[in-house]
Design a protein around this nucleic acid. Sequence first.
DNA 1: CGCAAAGTGGCAGCCACTGCCACGTGACCT
DNA 2: AGGTCACGTGGCAGTGGCTGCCACTTTGCG
Lengths: 197, 197
Amino acid sequence: MGLRETKMERTRQLLADTAFELFTANGFAATTMEQIAAAAEVGPRTLYRYYATKEALLLTFVEQRLDDALEVFRAQPEDAPVPRALHELIDYVLRTVAESGDRIIAVYELAWRTPSARARLNDKTTRWRGELATEIARRMGGRSAELAATLASANTMTVIEVSVRTWVESGGRSNMRRITHRALDLLRGSGVPVATP
Amino acid sequence: MGLRETKMERTRQLLADTAFELFTANGFAATTMEQIAAAAEVGPRTLYRYYATKEALLLTFVEQRLDDALEVFRAQPEDAPVPRALHELIDYVLRTVAESGDRIIAVYELAWRTPSARARLNDKTTRWRGELATEIARRMGGRSAELAATLASANTMTVIEVSVRTWVESGGRSNMRRITHRALDLLRGSGVPVATP
DNA sequence: CGCAAAGTGGCAGCCACTGCCACGTGACCT
DNA sequence: AGGTCACGTGGCAGTGGCTGCCACTTTGCG
């Protein structure tokens, strides 16, 4: 990797970190892009080249983790059974979430109170679900694989979301894995009501 | 209802319709709020009082239908079994979607290509899922009802989404209900993979 | 060393969105 | 019926996110 790329990567990180500090200190809406650029000692125009929107600046951290998780799934051996690969994925997410701790909680709470940021986050997870679904479908094969894969990815995302959410709401003190296991048990058994005519 | 409210309701409708026409004719981004206000013969300031954001102007139609559907669910008899009530909900959505036809398709396609609009739509459906989940949980009662309800509402939303999406992508020509039934069959049987260690 | 490629940043400008205030119209009451 | 009061309307000025354009600087490479 050349000197150029290294510097850019550093700047990129610096910008996100600076923004995060200002956001937590003064709030998302009250922080202007100009302030962030000034605090990071770059021109406003440069800031926009790294992050096209203010929301991206807040959410890049979370979005990066989501993409990593997808990569973990893709890295599973091609002949691994889908349930096993899904477990690997969930496990990775819970582990990294627990590791990132405070930062995750802070980002979530900021995004939660900011319509535009929350919308973008929900958009990301929705698209993420779609990508996971196509990957699952590819591994399943056969008829109606796409449909089953879509449902499976939705379930997986829900399990992750509900686990993380309750964990965040408890301020990082509750046991994230307990919720996950209970949710997966419900899915395996027939504890989840399904529409019936 | 007084004369005042009637007029406001009419203006509200007029604004959404005018905006919709301009959006489909010139595109979402290329249409300014000022143009919409001018075309509807109101001041720009007034437009903002009816619709706080440009995205709301595009999505009010779809969002309204979603809220109606939730109301249908809430209107089910309190002792109706949850699977039956869910079926009623899905049925209502598919029926109104089919009725609204072209408008739904046009809004979806516009929103799909516009990040901010798509984000807001995904945000709406996510929050909608949450509201549905609390309603299901209330009707289920018992331990871990909340968890099961969250999973059930996610499944329901996925079934609806995938049915509507394939229908929209086919330009309104495919059979929406076939997908719905196949998806529900998969959920009832064990055709959907679940994470397993 | 010199040139091409690529990153930086300043400037002007568009437009979504807001607070404020004056005006006019429908609602209600005596 | 008329007055008055609440409320919807709309104009104006201003903020800030975001973009196109262009000149300047720095890096990579022959």
